[in-house]
């Protein structure tokens, strides 16, 4: 299970790769990994956070777990920042809390002390986790904040946009994926994968979170532009940041494992992320084209006659 927070990097423009390196250099002696194709994507080293607390449960049972959460920060296209945390829940061999070295030998695993039903746990996490229970959201938020509060950023964003949170649970079984918009900022994914859990599932959820954030942000920008409700110039001014900062970032499945691509594709069929994105992009471009034509008519139109 995991939670990904996604937001706009607190900077006026796109940051270059070298700055990404500095922003994500969270652990000395470890390199920031960067892939440049098809879009620049930089990831911090994985870091661990120790937890010993109540775990989510739909039946509100008191389940205790101890272990570590794996987290990382990433920057895509020098523009979008993500804080992502996840952990695998496993049954402990014993009901008592082990020395800490036991848990550090299993990075990214939280062991359940006592009995637990996987379904109860997954339902509990996807619904409303208890406030005093495992808080992956807070950990992800910190991994996003560590980048956002860096002195390397000028904190002058071209537009204001809220961060989105995507909470996900993956279980083994017959492949299926359910994507739910729970509120303006909260989304959940229930994913059933064949065979063992792989880190590819985390990549998939981060990729989905990124594209969901892009869609959400573009929708908000179009809404704020009040197309048809205000002057064409004002609309164009409001739409411009989308062209400058967002439109080129749509690159679905760029880092998704081949075996997991069908999950993305099924969401792309219904509800059709790319279809909606494309229609909004067309709308933005049409609006700007209309505005350009009007502008040409106003300024240069006389000369042509």
């Amino acid at each position: 299970m995991g939670e990904v927070h996604t937001g706009l990097l607190q900077n006026s423009g796109e940051v270059p790769e070298s700055t990404c390196h500095e922003l994500l250099n969270l652990l000395s002696g470890e390199r920031v990994r960067v892939s440049r194709r098809p879009i620049v994507h930089a990831v911090s080293p994985d870091l661990l956070t120790g937890v010993d607390c109540r775990l989510p449960s739909a039946s509100r049972s008191r389940i205790r777990g101890a272990g570590t959460v794996l987290s990382r920060s990433s920057i895509t296209g020098g523009r979008v920042v993500q804080g992502s945390s996840h952990t695998r829940i496993e049954r402990a061999g014993s009901d008592r809390r082990q020395p800490w070295s036991h848990y550090l030998a299993r990075p990214g695993v939280v062991e359940v002390l006592g009995k637990v039903k996987a379904r109860d746990l997954a339902d509990g996490f996807a619904e409303e986790p208890p406030p005093d229970g495992l808080d992956l959201g807070a950990i992800s938020a910190r991994f996003m904040d560590v980048v956002q509060t860096s002195s390397l950023l000028d904190r002058r964003t071209p537009f204001k946009i809220a961060r989105t949170k995507l909470r996900w649970v993956a279980e083994p079984g017959e492949p299926a994926i359910t994507f739910t918009l729970r509120s303006d900022q909260m989304r959940t994914i229930r994913l059933v994968h064949q065979g063992e859990f792989t880190p590819g599932v985390v990549d998939l959820c981060e990729d989905l979170a990124l594209h969901d954030w892009l869609l959400t942000s573009l929708l908000v920008i179009i809404e704020r532009a009040r197309i048809g409700g205000t002057s064409a110039t004002e609309t164009a001014v409001k739409l411009a940041p989308a062209v400058d900062h967002l439109l080129h970032l749509w690159m679905p499945m760029a880092r998704v494992d081949d075996a997991l691509i069908p999950f993305w594709e099924s969401l792309d069929r219904r509800p059709g992320f790319t279809r909606q994105w494309q229609s909004m992009v067309d709308r933005v471009r049409d609006q700007l084209a209309v505005r350009t034509l009007a502008f040409l008519r106003e300024t240069g139109g006389g000369k042509a006659q």
Partner: peptide, 24 residues
């Protein structure tokens, strides 16, 4: 700086009720 390298890799042993909501 080997010592700094190791310091960066310290993951504190969490007391009970450490749920991640606050930094260690």
């Amino acid at each position: 700086e080997l010592a700094r390298l190791v310091e960066g890799r310290l993951v504190n042993d969490p007391p009970p009720d450490t749920n991640g909501s606050r930094p260690p």
